[in-house]
Design a protein around this nucleic acid. Structure first.
Lengths: 229, 229
DNA sequence: TAAAAAACAAGCAAGTTTGTTTGATTGTTT
DNA sequence: AAACAATCAAACAAACTTGCTTGTTTTTTA
């Protein structure tokens, strides 16, 4: 009673059917992971205590211990949770734009760059960075984080390729992709910069221009190769 | 006795003269700040306890409390310490290269980009990032960090301008500078990436190429303007 | 040289956080 | 209905960290 009123965990509780218990259990689990993620964003990884997570999730600490026997086990679960969430969010972001089958226009490129910027400004990105930062000096966390991070990069690149088939065969794809990703990360993590927004906007303008040039040059050289055959 | 043998704080202790106490005091102070910085790198900001700092510095906790009455006061001092250190390191890095007065060559640009990469791989950068990361969710720390960060960016840009007078009058300077800095930061903070070194190398190649193009175009347009006059 | 100031060492008390236990309540499945 | 799973509540000890306090030593100054 006090639980549901405080946080309304059961947002859309299914009617009582067979096997509801499992669903309910999964819901609390998700509520806990979601609460942990929120705590990361609001107070950072290090200050996120088990009691705070439980409070935020509207769950007793005892109940939480039932699902996750230790603080570390929660953190590990959040890593997996965020991994899936971030991939899902990327798909949703990409679903909004349908790329033309023909050549990319200036506007298309500009659009995708801005989307990449939006992506690193989502809450999930911040929470993920908190874990990544903590992993640097926490061996146990790092052991879990490292393969996840590598898998994320792999899947992320793969998805990018499928969304932009235009780049598919160009040798410049991977460096260009890295250029964008590293740059976005650097900008996202520079919260304290002076005139950040204006500077970011300018850099994004530049980036779009650069990508367009790379794209054009690659196209030309490809056409050159084909005609040379 | 146990102190000096454990860590050799007094690296080059001056002979006993008048006012030695002040120097010795400053040395312990520096030893503590240096120890804190090392701790940030090795175990992270959050796990850096006052006891650990004191141990690392070869100083008793009581002595440390005499210099810094609280943990936070140490952290604040480290911020100022790192601010100066990083500016000094940048100057030292730039002192190694003497730019020609004439136009920049491809090699010059390539060189400075690689130097920027070296810069974000120094210990001081990692330690600084630890503080920056902690500042995001710690208001008290943030209040100290924010003006320092802004001052650093300002001075950094200013130094860059004086080292590369060639860029001085080009309107493309600031976005190009930001492009480099944000990118370096993003790459430096991507420790867990697969094939990181190879990818970074490629991106740096690309960046050097891009900067060369920007530089050439700006030069041309400037010459164009002058001849138009 | 004697007094004052600075630097240092060691230990203690209060507060936090974690992981655990114990026991009760509620809801589900067979 | 009986067995079972999930949840909740409260309290506990152990470990850790912090800030403080009490002396001791060293250096400077009068």
């Amino acid at each position: 009673m006090a639980r549901t009123s405080s946080k309304e965990v059961a947002a859309k509780a299914p009617k009582r059917e067979a096997g509801w218990q499992a669903e309910k259990s999964a819901m609390t689990r998700t509520a806990i992971l979601d609460a942990a993620m929120t705590c990361f964003i609001e107070i950072g990884y290090a200050n996120t205590t088990t009691a705070l997570i439980a409070n935020h999730a509207g769950v007793s600490r005892g109940a939480m211990m039932h699902h996750f026997p230790s603080r570390m086990s929660v953190m590990k679960a959040v890593i997996a949770y965020l991994h899936e969430l971030r991939l899902k969010e990327y798909l949703e972001l990409m679903a909004d734009i349908d790329m033309p089958d023909a050549q990319l226009t200036n506007k298309d490129i500009r659009n995708s760059v801005e989307m990449a910027w939006n992506y690193v400004n989502m809450p999930s990105f911040i929470a993920y960075q908190e874990l990544l930062g903590a992993s640097r000096t926490d061996p146990e966390l790092k052991a879990v984080m490292e393969p996840v991070e590598k898998d994320f990069e792999k899947q992320f690149l793969q998805m990018a390729k499928s969304v932009f088939p235009h780049w598919q065969k160009l040798p410049a794809l991977e460096p260009a992709h890295d250029l964008v990703q590293f740059l976005m990360k650097g900008m996202a993590l520079s919260q304290m910069s002076t005139r950040r927004n204006a500077r970011v906007k300018k850099v994004i303008d530049y980036l779009a221009l650069i990508l367009m040039e790379i794209y054009d040059e690659s196209i030309e050289s490809r056409l050159g190769d084909e005609s040379a055959k």
